[in-house]
Amino acid sequence: MTGRKIFILITAGLLAVSAVWCVYLAMRPAGEEIVISQDGKELYRIDLSRTPYRTIEVEYKGRKNVIEIKDGEVRMTHADCPDHICIETGKLRPDTPIVCLPNRLVIEYAGGGLDGTAR
């Protein structure tokens, strides 16, 4: 019986820690700057408050992604990859980046990631 109690405690603890982590990420101020990077290299750094509308095309090994910035919202509108997960992600949120794994593309708020917590 004690084993069972320990297991329940560990599971509950894991859930609690993840929930707190989630809330922490969601509450964090996002800032106005977004970073678009590919293969670990930063391609664009864009100030959303100064960019009312812009589309950006990014290519990777012949495959293309189109990113749209409109009224302070960022989303992927076109992707050549097979799964289209990045498009389904919708608009960019401060807690989770938009990721296109096959094309190695990441769009995130500049304050995000581990670098943000270190600041």
């Binding site: 982590w21 989770t96 980046p97 990631g113």
Partner: peptide, 18 residues
């Protein structure tokens, strides 16, 4: 991706994994 950005997905994935 050579980026830590995806770490933002981890807490959501941990909850869904549980």
């Amino acid at each position: 991706l050579k980026s830590k950005a995806v770490l933002g997905y981890l807490p959501v994935l941990l909850i869904s994994g549980c």
